[in-house]
């Protein structure tokens, strides 16, 4: 093998290691497309405003949950914490925090319904859940439920069919949990 070939091989390994969060996002977009849920943006919604918040180790993707009886959209935020470098990958693996947020949208127009919604808004403001618990939040016509988890990306990407099955189980399990929490808010 030529010197350039060896350098390329080394460089290639590094590139793939750095790209594991993107590979994870790609697999997720594919799996949710099988459910009929298209990707609708690479942004994050903060206080009703969409902001582009995608960096080298931070991914934000939104999906429209077409034909779902409860959910209107889904937002996924992947924040990679380790594993971009060879040393951290060897020592602690590719750890990341994954936040999945389900949104129920109520197009409320009746003034009586609007008054009732404010009452539930205030109840949820002071709740701060621990990692792994579901947090419910209201923003105008939307109700959000969010669940966060620390994951090892290597269990889900470049791990063949088993990795894809693991990711599907993680996604669908979380979505079912969020849907269960949110269904009482759906008008």
């Amino acid at each position: 093998m030529s010197l350039l070939g060896m350098v390329n091989k080394f460089k290639h390994k590094g590139e793939i290691r750095e790209s594991k969060d993107e590979i994870f996002i790609g697999e997720m977009i594919y799996l949710l497309s099988l459910t009929g849920w298209p990707c609708i943006g690479f942004t994050r919604k903060i206080m009703g405003v969409e902001v582009t918040a995608t960096g080298a180790d931070l991914q934000n993707v939104r999906f429209r949950t077409l034909n779902d009886p409860v959910l209107y959209s889904l937002h996924v935020r992947l924040d990679r914490k380790s594993g971009s470098g060879a040393l951290s990958a060897a020592l602690v693996g590719s750890k990341a925090t994954l936040y999945i947020t389900g949104e129920v949208k109520n197009h409320l127009a009746d003034p009586d319904d609007l008054v009732n919604q404010w009452a539930t808004d205030i109840k949820n403001i002071l709740k701060f859940p621990l990692m792994g618990q579901v947090k419910v939040n209201h923003e105008l016509n939307s109700i959000f439920a969010e669940k966060g988890a620390v994951i090892d990306i290597d269990q889900y990407v470049l791990a063949g069919e088993q990795g894809r099955n693991n990711l599907n189980a993680l996604l669908m399990g979380t979505v079912n949990e969020l849907r269960e929490v949110l269904k009482k808010y759906k008008k």
Binding site: S19, I23, G26, E27, I29, C39, F42, T52, Q59, V61
Partner: peptide, 28 residues
């Protein structure tokens, strides 16, 4: 959102063919 929907579909189509997404940049 049409461009985002389309881009998502490009990603999904490529992953379905066995490719890995290794770079993603978007400013909206």
């Amino acid at each position: 959102r049409v461009d985002d929907i389309f881009l998502g579909a490009v990603i999904s189509s490529a992953v379905r063919l066995g490719r890995c997404l290794i770079d993603l940049e978007s400013d909206g």
